[in-house]
């Protein structure tokens, strides 16, 4: 149910986007909506991050995954158990760039009806790395459409990405990895009964949305052979605030379908689980140093609580304490 609704929603949105190819609609789908989407995306992201950052962190609660820094002759593990800001940054870098925690993944199962064994389960990590890194490189590659002249690093990345030199135009490695990664993440979610059980529409929708964007992009490059000059004119126009009616009209329905899905993605991500990419930076179990006993952490909303003070305790037990030879304050 959640799967079909999400698939239908993405399909419907794509078709809606192709309307941009209709006469005169280019201005809405090629100018107004992209600006709106960027506005919502950036504004939404700021709102989202502030909604987290404005909440205090009352306690220092890192999850430690290695040896602490204690005695000088015991080797500590600063990247799994950082003891200061610098090592915490190192830990975060591993987490953000290489999904360190996900790499730990194991699969637990009972074999021979009595033995519980754990095996390494790296595929989720591999799929996630393939998808996320490809996505980043694909984004950077797209700068060649938005910028004129094209920055050298973008050109370089593009060349490197097409090093296989298969197809004309060449098929980028990241395109394949992006789609393969997504396909794996989707297949995994559908194949495992437990994952299916916990998956919401909000888990399938982004997968289909990315797949829609990826497939339509592939299509634009390799099958339809879109009018790249017009597309570049539209894109450069967006980044330079100068618009060309002819180019907007010539860009083609399929391009608008692709662009509209990107707009949906931009507007959707701050309000969805996709915001995890910003959230991970703020995660207190990862970004805090385990310096708990050497540097005091202050809780900004700390308040006095009712305790049981010693004198009340002694008042209750004084005679018994004296009888048992426990020293007391008041004889």
């Amino acid at each position: 149910m959640n799967v079909l609704i999400s698939l239908a929603a993405v399909g419907g949105l794509f078709l809606l986007g192709t309307l941009g190819g209709a006469p005169g609609m280019g201005w809405i789908f090629g100018v107004v909506l992209p600006y709106l989407a960027v506005g919502i995306g950036i504004g939404g992201l700021i709102w989202r991050v502030m909604s987290w950052a404005n909440v205090p962190v009352p306690f220092r609660i890192p999850t430690t995954c290695g040896q602490q820094k204690s005695l000088p002759w015991i080797k500590s593990n600063p990247l799994e158990n950082p003891h200061n800001g610098l090592t915490a940054v190192g830990r975060m870098a591993l987490e953000v760039l290489f999904f360190r925690s996900l790499l730990r993944n194991t699969k637990a199962e009972v074999i021979d009806q009595r033995r519980l064994v754990y095996t390494s389960a790296p595929w989720l990590w591999i799929g996630a790395m393939a998808f996320h890194w490809s996505f980043l490189i694909i984004l950077v590659r797209h700068l060649r459409l938005l910028a004129n002249p094209v920055p050298w690093c973008v050109t370089f990345l593009q060349r490197a990405d097409g090093f296989l030199e298969i197809g004309l135009p060449v098929i980028y490695v990241t395109t394949v990895l992006f789609l393969a990664g997504l396909a794996y993440l989707l297949a995994r979610r559908l194949a495992s009964p437990q994952l299916r059980y916990i998956s919401l529409a909000g888990d399938y929708f982004p997968l289909f949305l990315f797949l829609g964007i990826g497939i339509s992009g592939f299509w634009l490059r390799h099958w339809t052979k879109t009018d790249i000059v017009s597309v570049k004119q539209v894109a450069v126009g967006l980044s330079g605030f100068s618009f060309d009616s002819d180019a907007l009209a010539a860009a083609g329905s399929l391009f608008y379908g692709h662009l509209f899905l990107v707009c949906v993605l931009l507007a959707y991500f701050p309000f969805s689980k996709l915001s995890h990419f910003a959230g991970v930076f703020l995660s207190p179990t990862r970004n805090m140093a385990n310096s708990n006993r050497s540097v005091r952490h202050v809780n900004p909303w700390d308040y006095p609580v009712k305790v049981h003070p010693y004198d009340e305790y002694e008042d209750e037990f004084r005679e018994k304490m004296k009888g048992a030879g426990v020293p007391v304050e008041k004889e």
Binding site: A53, V55, P56, V57, G279, L282, S283, P284
Partner: peptide, 11 residues
Amino acid sequence: KYRSFKLFMDT
């Protein structure tokens, strides 16, 4: 009061 709680609800 707890960034952990808010963040873990969202991410």
